[in-house]
Amino acid sequence: MPEQPEIESLITRHYPALQRIAASHEANTALREELVQDMLESIWRSWSKFRGESSPKTYILRIAYYRAARHIEKQMRRLETNVEQTVESVDPQHPEQNAEQQQQINQLLYAIHRLPIVQKQLITMSFDGLSYQEMAEVTGLSISNVGVRLNRAKATLKKLLEHHYAN
């Protein structure tokens, strides 16, 4: 079992990915930050149960996606639905950021928020450069199925983005 300094460095290494996962599940900035903290806390608490059956990265991502899905359920309970919320700027503290780039990110997040959980996971893992093997470990799909489901997810995302641009 890895020691505490190791979990600290692992968390630091995957922190940007965790924030992007949170962004793909929550539009509101404050709630997104709370979700990231929930993920970090869960990962820290669960680390003692890590037995090396998968890679530390996929172990961390499994926990992160689980927390994100639980977060959606909690928000649906609280607000009935949060999908109609406007996607807020990813980082409101950087107004100098290129407005067009920010708009593109917002449109992409807007479309990703509307994907079913599994498709959302596959798309975001693909964006973060995970291999099919790693995606299979996180989702429980077979490696051969990952490619098929990912292509379907890409097609759905394409439709959502086209629909968004059309409107």
Partner: peptide, 18 residues
């Protein structure tokens, strides 16, 4: 993918807070 990865994110988590 480039748009996704260009999202501004913080680099250091607050370990004390965790």
């Amino acid at each position: 993918t480039r748009q996704w990865q260009q999202q501004p994110v913080a680099q250091q988590p607050d370990i004390g807070l965790i």
